[in-house]
C-alpha cells in the first residue's frame, strides 16, 4: 500500500515537473499566458474608461505593473523556432521586423511607467491610459493575426 502510494506520488511529481519544464521551454505558451494576464488586468480599466465601472486606482496600477512586467519578458519569447505551433496569433513579420517589434514593447514599458505616476483620478486616467493602449493597438495592428 505504502509502496503504491510512493510510486503514484513519484510519478505525479515527475509528470508535474515535466509539465512545468515544458511550459518553461515553450515560448508560445509563455507569451500567450503573459498576454492573457495583460488582457485580464486591462478588463476592469476598460470599464472605467467607458464609465461603466468606478475609478479604482489600485486596479489601474495593477494593470500598469502587469504591462511593465510583460514588456520586459515578451521580447525574448519570440525565438526563431517559435513561429508556428501552439495556435499562435503572432504574425510572421515579427521575425522580419524584430527591432521595431521589440521597440514597441520598450515603448509599452515606458508609457506604462509614465502613466503609473500620472494617473490619480478618473480625469487623468483617460489621456494617460489611452497612451498605453495606443501602443497595444499599434503592435496588434501590425503583428497580431486577426481571428477571421
Amino acid at each position: 500500500m505504502m509502496k503504491k502510494f510512493l510510486t503514484i506520488s513519484i510519478l505525479a511529481g515527475v509528470a508535474f515537473a515535466a509539465g512545468a519544464a515544458t511550459a518553461q521551454n515553450d515560448p508560445i505558451a509563455q507569451r500567450k499566458s503573459i498576454m492573457k494576464g495583460v488582457g485580464d488586468a486591462t478588463k476592469p480599466v476598460a470599464g472605467m474608461l467607458k464609465g461603466t465601472e468606478p475609478f479604482d486606482n489600485a486596479l489601474v496600477q495593477k494593470a500598469l505593473a502587469t504591462y511593465i512586467d510583460a514588456a520586459k519578458k515578451m521580447p525574448s519569447l519570440f525565438p526563431a523556432d517559435s513561429k508556428h505551433g501552439g495556435e499562435t496569433t503572432a504574425r510572421s513579420n515579427i521575425w522580419d521586423e524584430k527591432p521595431r517589434f521589440d521597440g514597441l514593447f520598450a515603448r509599452l514599458g515606458q508609457e506604462a511607467a509614465a502613466a503609473q505616476g500620472a494617473i490619480k483620478d478618473q480625469d487623468s486616467l483617460k489621456p494617460n491610459f489611452g497612451k498605453v493602449l495606443g501602443v497595444c493597438k499599434e503592435c496588434h495592428d501590425d503583428y497580431r493575426e486577426k481571428k477571421n
Binding site: 486591462t42 478588463k43 476598460a46 467607458k50 493602449l133 497595444c136 493597438k137 496588434h140 497580431r144 481571428k147
Partner: peptide, 9 residues
C-alpha cells in the same frame, strides 16, 4: 471593436 473589446468599441 478590437478583438478583446478593450481598446476601441
Amino acid at each position: 471593436a478590437d478583438e478583446d473589446r478593450l481598446i476601441i468599441e
